[in-house]
Design a protein around this nucleic acid. Sequence first.
DNA 1: AAAATCTGTTACGGAATACGTAACGAATTT
DNA 2: AAATTCGTTACGTATTCCGTAACAGATTTT
Lengths: 274, 274
Amino acid sequence: MAVDVNEVDILERPASTGIQSIENGTPVLRALVQAKGPMSLTAIATATGMAPGKAHKYLASYIRAGLVTQNETGGRYDLGPFALELGVAAMRRIDVMEIAQAAMDELRNLLGYTVSLALWANHGPTIMRIAETPDIMSLTVRFGTVMPLLTSSFGRIFTAYLDRRITQSMIQAELADPKGLAAQAGLRTFADVDKLLAQFRARRMSVAENLSTPGRAALAAPIFDHNNRIVAAIAVVSVQGRLDLDADSRPARELANTARKLSQRLGAALDQIP
Amino acid sequence: MAVDVNEVDILERPASTGIQSIENGTPVLRALVQAKGPMSLTAIATATGMAPGKAHKYLASYIRAGLVTQNETGGRYDLGPFALELGVAAMRRIDVMEIAQAAMDELRNLLGYTVSLALWANHGPTIMRIAETPDIMSLTVRFGTVMPLLTSSFGRIFTAYLDRRITQSMIQAELADPKGLAAQAGLRTFADVDKLLAQFRARRMSVAENLSTPGRAALAAPIFDHNNRIVAAIAVVSVQGRLDLDADSRPARELANTARKLSQRLGAALDQIP
DNA sequence: AAAATCTGTTACGGAATACGTAACGAATTT
DNA sequence: AAATTCGTTACGTATTCCGTAACAGATTTT
C-alpha cells in the first residue's frame, strides 16, 4: 500500500513498522469506551465497520487478555478488569493526582464545599477526583464526567489556558448549536468567548453559575506544571446562592491559594504565566 | 500446529480462535503496568522475554493506538492517554453494589451466615444489600437502616477508615449521651474510640457483639476503591455465640478474603492502605 | 580523541497468521 | 412452525509477523 508523498506530509509520522493487528484492534476498544455500557457483537461490528466474524476474533483475544469481559450467557461484551488496571496504573503516573488528593481534602474541610479535580482527557475536562462534603444535598459530580468547554467552570479554565488549536473545533461545535448551553449563556461568537476568557485569565479563575447543571455554582482554578502549562484544574462546587463567587470571597481566595501551592509543587513559575 | 488431544483437555478453555498478536502484545502492556514509571525498550524486552526488535514493533503500534507514549527524545516508554481513557471508562461502569451481590451470595453460601453490605449515606453507614440465610432466626437486618458509628460493626469500620473530620461531630454526639450505647460499650472519650479503631485498622476488620442490637454479633471488613478510599463495608452477621469473632476464625478469614477481592476489582492498591 | 559499547531502530526472507465469505446452531420473533 | 436474528466457527489465499542481524546515534571506556 504505497502512500502518496503528499499524503505522507499530511500524516503525522513516517509510521515506523509495527504490528497491524494491534492497530486494527483498537477501534474495538474505542467502541466499548465510547458506549456507556455493554455492547452486542453486532453493535461493535457496525461501530467499527468490521464484519461480525472479524470483530468476534478480536474480542475473543481481548477477553483472554483481560481487556474485555463477556456476559457468561454468551452475550454482551464490556471492558474487563485489565482495562481497569491499565487506567489505575496510568492515573498513578500523573503527579497532580497524587499531590492533589490531600490538598483537596484540606480545602473541602476548610470551606465545607465539594471540591473536585479535572484533567484534560477524553477530548475535554474529565473529572478525576472528588472530595465530597458530608452534606447529602447536591453532588451530581461524578467521576469520569467530561465537562463542556464554554459552560462549565472546568471547561472555561481549560479553554482559557490551553492552546487554542486544541480547543478550536470543540468551541466551534458548542457555538454552533443556537439552542445549546453556550447560546443560553449569551455566547454566540468567538469574540464573546475571548472576552469571557480574558476575564478568567485576568482573575486566574473561572466561574460558572446555573449553566451545564441547573442550580449549581462553581469556581475553578488552573494548576500548571513545570512547563507552565495547565495540567489540571481544581474546583469548588456548590448550590447556586450558597457559594460566593466574588473574587474576594473566602472560597475564591482559598481556592486560588490551593491551586497556587499545587502549581508550585509541580515546578511552575507562576510569575511567568500570562 | 496441531495440538495433541490430551493437551487440549489440560488447557482451560476450548480457546475459540482469536488474533494472536493481540494476546502476544498484552505482556508489553502488563510490563508497563507493573513498572511504576517509564521503561526502556530493553527493560520491556527482558520483562516480556521478547527480542528488542519485536517489542519495538508492538510499542510502535501501541503508540499509534494511544496506549503508550514515548519520551520524544527517542527514549523511554510509558502508558499513554488511551490507557487513561480505558480506565476511566472501566471505572465508570463498576458499581460496588453490583459486583458485591455475587460475592455476598457466595460468602453466605460458604459460611451459612447472613451477609450484608453498607455504603456511607445519610450521615452514616446505610445497609444497602442483604444476602440472607434460610434460617428464620436472627435477621433484623433491614434495608436502608443507618447504623451507629461506635456500636455497630459497620459504623466502626467506616469510622476507622473515613477521614475523622467527616465523623467527628457524629462521634461526639454518640459519646455525649452518658446512658447511650457507646457508654454502655465502655466508650467515654475520643481516646477510648481511637484505641478501639486502631485495633480494627490493624486487623482491617471490626467487631461488634451485643451492642446496637441485643444478642447479635457481627464482623465487618472495608472495601476500598481506586482512590484507596473506603466506599463500602461488608459484614457477616449472626447471633451472639454462634459466630466465632476471632481473627483466625473461618468467617473472619473468608470475609477478609471477599473484601480484598472486591477492593481489587475496584482498582484499589491494598498494599498502600495504612 | 578514538574505540568500544550500549541504546533504539530498521531491513529481509520464510513461515505462520489474519482476512473475507459463508455456513452453522441456537435463541427469539413472526 | 417458519423466519429472522444473533453469536460463533470453518476454510483457502494473501498478507503479516517472527527471528536474525545490521544500522545510526549516544554514552562510556580505553
